[in-house]
Design a protein around this nucleic acid. Structure first.
Ligand SMILES: [Zn+2]
Ligand SMILES: [Zn+2]
Ligand SMILES: [Zn+2]
Ligand SMILES: [Zn+2]
Lengths: 136, 136
DNA sequence: GTAATCTCTCTAGCGGCTAGAGCTTCAAGA
DNA sequence: TCTTGAAGCTCTAGCCGCTAGAGAGATTAC
């Protein structure tokens, strides 16, 4: 049994974030000490690590609720988990595509060789999307 | 002179967003009709289009305040504008790099060919970052 | 016993909007 | 000119995923 501070250190998740996850129903309401402080076991650490890793991979709090639920039922089919991962992947790819378009425009305007605002490619482009090469 | 609805349609920015930009000091407090409704001119449209385009390119509200200010002073050097664009570009590249690492992991776990949660690569990976190929 | 360090709950704030309630104003047609 | 319906007004609250702070109580080490 360890404190929330210890859990925080071990899992690499800030204390208020742990309490937030509890509120959001990701972490079960923790056991309490006599003085009402949260006490965690190895299980709590595992669960929190799962949550952290899922967040790092971009899953939403809602998704994670589902994934945690699934992980509790080893006999169930994993189709749902695959679907969530696939949706995540699609989303990530869409975001990459969008950012690449941004990168292209930003690279272009960063090449401005004017000295004053009057002829600055950055300002001119912001004022007129027609100067852009692509969509965004 | 046109209404906020008309401005919204022409600039492709929602009405509450326009009012929000006014609150944030990006749009100047608009002229008003006798009945206290906002009235805009071509200048307002230009300014809003500039804001919209800047947002699309990923600049923050704060950055945009600066960029608008710069754009009002054509004689000034454009170094500041370049710096902002460069910082934006760096940020976009960092985000792309991060998303690509994500993409790789998500692609890997999406290749799970198990049937049940018990052996599902998605769930296993979320429970153990050690199974990941890279950092994130 | 006392001091230092945790931890507790509760509330509010971040960015960039978005939505709704409850009201007033405007514009077009009869 | 009057009516009606759309559009506008302000104000407040909510979204996500935290993060920060106040002011209180608990724990721990010496
Ligand atoms: Zn320039
Ligand atoms: Zn553009
Ligand atoms: Zn699977
Ligand atoms: Zn990992």
């Amino acid at each position: 049994m360890f404190s929330i501070g210890e859990l925080s250190r071990r899992a690499g998740v800030k204390i208020p974030t742990i309490r937030y996850y509890e509120q959001m129903g990701l972490m079960a309401a923790a056991d309490r000490s006599e003085g009402n402080q949260r006490r965690y076991s190895k299980d709590g650490l595992k669960r929190l690590s799962f949550i952290r890793h899922s967040r790092e991979l971009g899953f939403s709090i809602d998704d994670i609720r589902g994934l945690l639920e699934l992980s509790q039922h080893p006999e169930k089919p994993c189709r749902d988990a695959h679907n969530m991962a696939a949706r995540r992947l699609d989303d990530v790819r869409a975001r990459i595509a969008k950012l690449r378009r941004l990168e292209r425009e930003l690279k272009r305007i960063s090449g401005c060789d004017a000295d004053t605002i009057a002829h600055c490619a950055v300002i001119e482009t912001l004022a007129d999307h027609g100067l852009c090469e692509g969509d965004h």
